[in-house]
Design a protein around this nucleic acid. Structure first.
Length: 286
DNA sequence: CCCATATAGCGATAACGACG
DNA sequence: CGTCGTTATCGCTATATGGG
């Protein structure tokens, strides 16, 4: 994708592609963007052709923060400084792109396990923040457009069928119930970004079974290993996506893939500019 | 205790390479 | 080319955890 506004020292001010974008200091951009996304403003004349008022997407009730998914107040949360100064340009994105805080979490064993091959995004962050910055097509691809069907309540053992029919067989000899085949969820094409490892195109999808939002895909494991995350590391998840900008009928730039940045909390202040350039230029390396 | 959610564990299946 | 074993990928389900 060609970089938007390539060669331009200053973006065209009259083109407002995202209502969340404001001329405020970048440190506050995420909080302001979140505020704007929560209360959908009217789109201007230069709204992207793909944009649909957020009111078309029914908001979900915000979950209550819990001890296991602590929600630190977003106000004052600083975006990774190196991201805006260097990485957006490296990714061919606008430097003034709104960057949205999504969630924070502790890296779990399953995020790193070679058998699992997936990264879970805390659901409250998805519901409250990530969902708000996606357009319906992306929500559909990520299986986030509609509320998942309620998980059927597990029936008590005495109400479950077949148990009685099996009789009093010893536990070791019970007929094993074949596991249901998993639904192929597909997913929204997106890019996982790490300040050290670069980017990797993967898929994001909300699973119907567990309602968890999962980043998966070929090469995930290789990528996450290069991220140098360890179990119990506290990380923040940020998201940004560039929207199509049209000016006088011609597109200045197209939609980008959703980018999801995972960064260690205590490493935020450090500007890591040592990422090999080719990680951002040659997706085959990622 | 009940419920919701996060995490861990397991199993199915596809992809791939070695071998004859 | 067909078979077999290994590995990677993916999703279901059980369990753990915490709040009300």
């Amino acid at each position: 994708m060609p970089p938007c506004f390539a060669g331009s020292k200053r973006p065209l001010e009259m083109v407002v592609y995202d209502p969340a974008a404001t001329p405020s200091p970048s440190a506050n951009a995420a909080a302001l963007a979140l505020h704007a996304a929560a209360a959908p403003p009217p789109f201007g004349d230069f709204a992207p052709i793909s944009a649909v008022p957020l009111s078309a997407v029914p908001p979900r009730l915000p979950p209550v923060p819990t001890a296991r998914s602590p929600l630190v107040a977003d106000a004052g949360r600083e975006e990774p400084p190196c991201l805006r100064r260097h990485f957006l340009a490296e990714l061919g994105l606008r430097a003034d792109l709104p960057v949205h805080f999504v969630a924070e979490k502790f890296v779990t064993n399953t995020d790193l396990d070679g058998h699992q091959n997936r990264f879970r995004i805390p659901s409250d962050g998805v519901e409250r923040r990530l969902r708000a910055i996606l357009i319906p097509r992306e929500l559909h691809n990520a299986n986030l457009l509609h509320d998942p069907p309620p998980i059927p309540r597990k029936r008590p053992r005495h109400e479950q069928p077949d148990v009685a029919a099996e009789g009093e067989q010893p536990p070791g000899k019970r007929m094993k119930q074949p596991k249901r085949k998993g639904k192929v969820h597909g997913g929204l094409r997106m890019k996982l970004v790490d300040l050290a490892a670069g980017t990797r195109e993967l898929q994001m999808s909300q699973w119907e079974s567990s309602r968890g939002t999962i980043v998966k895909g070929e090469g995930y494991l290789d990528f996450i290993r290069r991220c140098s995350f360890k179990e119990r590391d506290a990380v923040e998840i940020w998201a940004f996506v560039q929207r199509r900008v049209r000016l006088l009928g011609s597109a200045l730039c197209d939609d980008s893939l959703l980018h999801v940045l995972v960064v260690k909390r205590n490493k935020q202040a450090r500007c890591n500019c040592l990422v090999p350039h080719e990680h951002f230029q040659n997706p085959q390396l990622n």
